[in-house]
Simulated assay, not measured.
Amino acid sequence: MKNVANLFPLPVTETAYSYADYMFLMQKVVLENRTTGPKQSEDLAFYTKLNLARMQRLNKKVEISEDLKAKVAQINIPQTWYILTEAWCGDAAQNIPVLVAAALPNPLINVKLLLRDENPELMDAYTTNGGRSIPKLISVDEDFNELFTWGPRPAGANELMLQYKANPVQTMKEFVEDIQRWYIADKAQSVQKELTEILEGVFAEK
């Protein structure tokens, strides 16, 4: 278990969003026809608008599996689930509402969201194959000992991403549509299965 307190100094923890505040931020940037982060474009603003609608739908309809509910209920130490994200990220929109819904029943879990581009040092400590891929979940205890991580996307969606990067015959728009169809068909089951397996491993070590 590694201590990552140096990656979470006060400026980081003080600028973390609750999920309610993050949803408010999403609504704000959509109303302003922009997104979060330094890079702004019509495409990113468009995807942010889509992501807000997806998250609002998932907030109402996502169903957490009984296996995941049971594992989350077993968590008996206070911890914070920090999630690195940006409003334009489609993978974040599909997975964050599920992670939040899973954590919600256990009062020992505090979910906080951090904008990737405002926290480069933290993001660079949790890259995926050298890239700043999001969302990235980092669970820490009260002393900032790392408990587990997850992200940036379920294995099935990640395989689509790897195929696209290896042979980008599609346009980015076509790829985004393909991965969206994958998420619709998956019905938030893969992220839940992966999180369940992670929590099983954490408890197996105790």
Rank of each mutant, 00 (worst) to 15 (best):
R181C: 08
D141W: 01
T196G: 06
T149P: 13
P107L: 06
E174N: 03
L162W: 07
K165D: 10
N110H: 12
V98E: 08
I109W: 00
F175T: 05
F148S: 13
L199G: 07
D186H: 08
I96T: 04
G151Q: 04
L137R: 02
K193Q: 15
Q74L: 07
A125C: 02
G156N: 12
Q170L: 15
A125F: 05
W150M: 01
Q170W: 13
I134L: 09
T196E: 03
Y126E: 06
V100T: 06
T128D: 11
P78G: 03
P107S: 11
N76C: 07
L162I: 14
L113R: 01
D178I: 10
K112H: 09
N158F: 14
I109S: 00
G201V: 06
N76V: 02
G151E: 05
N145R: 10
T127M: 14
N167I: 07
K173W: 12
F144W: 11
P78D: 03
A155T: 11
V169E: 11
I184T: 14
I83P: 07
W88G: 06
V100Y: 07
T127V: 14
W182E: 04
K173H: 14
I77C: 00
I134R: 09
A101W: 00
M123W: 05
K165I: 11
W88F: 11
A102G: 01
A188D: 15
L195D: 01
A87E: 04
P168E: 09
E200M: 15
Q94A: 14
I75C: 03
L113A: 08
I77K: 00
A73P: 04
S133Y: 10
W150E: 01
L108D: 01
P135E: 05
K193D: 14
F203A: 04
W81D: 08
P135M: 01
S139M: 09
Q79K: 05
L199V: 08
I179S: 06
V140C: 12
A185G: 10
E200D: 15
Q180K: 14
E159G: 09
E86P: 03
